[in-house]
Design a protein around this nucleic acid. Sequence first.
DNA 1: AGTGCGATTGACT
DNA 2: GTCAATCGCACTA
Length: 171
Amino acid sequence: MRELPEGVASGRIVETEAYVVGDPAGHAYRGVTPRNRALFLERGHAYVYLAYGSSFMLNVSSETSGVGAGVLIRAIEPTDGITVMERNRGTERLRDLARGPGRLSAALEIDRRLDGIDLCQAGPLWLGSDGRASGEIGQSKRIGITRAADRLLRFYVRGNRFVSGPRVLDG
DNA sequence: AGTGCGATTGACT
DNA sequence: GTCAATCGCACTA
């Protein structure tokens, strides 16, 4: 859920990637730095960084305080605040609003200012559950990385059209 | 202080 | 399908 002056924008998370403890592909692999410090916060905090000079990536810290690991949120299925997201993305194509981590951040106006916030309590950005089943979960290799590229740490709602990249086959 | 490189995207052939 | 833009940051010296 993203709380903005112009209203609430939110959606269901349909695609994630895990960057686990001891993972050479993870930003926490080489220890704490100014950029990745939020990965070492208690699970449920936001780690936001800029990739390729233009795209913000939203992650959720996933271990206890002092241990670095996180989950990258790669896509959401938009449910509320569609108009706001359309304006932020410069398109009215629903499927393109938040399919991909950079697009998701653009749609929800996520940037470094949200780095380190607690996503488990109400605020400018937070996570909630509507109690509904998410659907069948597929598993695959992570997208766009070179190290530890064969690990099956990407998870997505199988067949969901708001998932970026492969969404049917495992592996 | 300088350098190389991405957890991507959008434009283009 | 291919490819360049773009810049903060981690790494080397």
